[in-house]
């Protein structure tokens, strides 16, 4: 259980980091290492070189700007979880964070690293997808913003090019007065989700759904927005339509049977979670409240 050999670089600037990535397409970015190092210890991953970005200037911290929480590349999960400004601006974050592994892992693992690892059952990719967020990828020709729906392309695969470094993730704030909820089904607390579901909802004065965002992880090769259910629930009073909307989402389960759960189990878990999360999110709506 030791990693195979690799070259090691500890650049101090973005330009240095970019130059190494541009030279070596098999080099991998090392941030917190909480997903990468287990894979390397198992020798599932054997990058030619690691670009350790912990000393790169300007990659730390969290700021709230332009209606989104900007999380820099070296920001640890635990910082994102405990940040008071984040808790005020988007309480969904702390709710999701409770499910990310365990505190000692969250102390080291980074939010952006988890996004780039793109495990289809992981919470961070789901959160970015649910919120309709984006990442900023810095390449040799400058930075580009990639929307979550375009970033996660397949199992452990993203739209990041090998010469790009993701320097920031942007998690939008909740709409004014919105209710939110996230939960997942796991074999043990802290494990990867068999199925996870998040929901954000706003209601009008009559109690009808004004806006709804619904997404799931663990059911496909990437996190999935459940757009069909969203369309069915928009404008509804929720209760009569919820069962049908949950049923309409079941075809989104395309993950094959694996050692942890069958596809049919995942469909049942998905339906139960959709029902619970939409109901819980709706119960937390604060009509007329500022965001």
């Amino acid at each position: 259980m030791k990693p195979s050999l690799f070259g090691y670089h500890a650049p101090k600037t973005l330009a240095e980091a970019g130059a190494i990535l541009a030279q070596d397409a098999d080099a991998t970015v090392l941030a917190g290492g909480q997903s990468l190092l287990p894979a390397m210890n198992f020798r599932v991953a054997a990058p030619s070189a690691l670009v350790d970005i912990q000393h790169v200037e300007g990659l730390k911290g969290i700021s709230i700007k332009d209606g989104a929480i900007a999380v820099r590349a070296m920001t640890r999960h635990r910082e994102f979880e405990l940040d008071e400004q984040v808790r005020q601006a988007n309480p969904l974050v702390a709710e999701v964070m409770q499910h990310v592994a365990h505190v000692p892992i969250r102390n080291r693992g980074t939010v952006v690293g988890s996004l780039c690892h793109a495990d289809p059952s992981a919470e961070m990719p789901l959160l970015l997808t649910l919120l309709g967020g984006s990442v900023i990828a810095q390449g040799p020709n400058g930075a580009r913003e990639i929307a979550a729906e375009d970033f996660f392309t397949s199992f452990l695969t993203t739209a990041r090019k090998s010469d790009e470094l993701v320097i920031e993730a942007r998690f939008p704030l909740l709409p004014a007065g919105a209710g939110w909820a996230f939960d997942e089904v796991t074999r043990r607390h802290g494990d990867f989700a068999l199925v996870g579901v998040g929901c954000i909802v706003t209601l009008d004065a009559q109690g009808k759904v004004q806006t709804i965002q619904l997404a799931a992880c663990g059911i496909a090769d990437r996190p999935v927005r459940l757009t069909e259910a969203e369309a069915m629930l928009k404008g509804s009073t929720l209760t009569p339509d919820l069962d049908a909307a949950a049923n309409a989402s079941l075809s989104a389960v395309v993950a094959p049977d694996d050692m942890h759960a069958s596809a049919s189990y995942r469909r049942r878990a998905l339906k139960a979670l959709i029902t619970r999360m939409v109901t819980k999110a709706a119960s937390r709506v604060r009509p007329g409240a500022p965001s």
């Binding site: 259980m1 030791k2 090392l30 290492g33 190092l37 287990p38 350790d52």
Partner: peptide, 28 residues
């Protein structure tokens, strides 16, 4: 113990925070 971050036996404090020493390279 497990050398892939599951068992927690190798937990130490890294810059004041508990972390897995098996999921941290010495050079880090």
């Amino acid at each position: 113990g497990c050398e892939h971050g599951v068992c927690g036996c190798c937990t130490v404090h890294i810059d004041g925070k508990a972390g897995r020493s098996c999921l941290t390279l010495a050079v880090q």
